[in-house]
């Protein structure tokens, strides 16, 4: 890894955490801390599961690409 790589590592780490925290705060802002008793909670939908499987795949592809790819 050269100096550009180190810069990208540090900037990437800071941005990654900033995005995660911002997302968490926005998500909490929208959803609150508890679901009202009037809302009927169902099982997790297939669409939700597929979407989340995509997120997991994206996480691993990106992470492994960083580990085995550029550097």
């Amino acid at each position: 890894m050269d100096q550009t790589g180190l810069s990208l590592l540090i900037l990437g780490a800071v941005s990654y955490q900033a995005i995660i925290m911002a997302g968490l705060i926005v998500w909490l802002w929208k959803r609150g801390i508890r679901v009202p008793a009037s809302v009927n909670i169902k099982q997790e939908s297939t669409t939700e599961r597929k979407k989340m499987a995509g997120v997991v795949a994206l996480f691993w592809i990106t992470t492994l690409a960083i580990i085995f790819g550029t550097w």
Binding site: Q17, I20, M21, G23, W27, E44, S45, M52, V56
Partner: peptide
């Protein structure tokens, strides 16, 4: 956690936890 958001919660939580490690 509400049962229709189990995956979302733990995926976000795990990836979120990991974000502290590079720091």
């Amino acid at each position: 956690v509400r049962r229709d958001k189990i995956s979302r919660t733990f995926i976000y939580g795990s990836i979120g936890w990991f974000s502290t490690i590079p720091m």
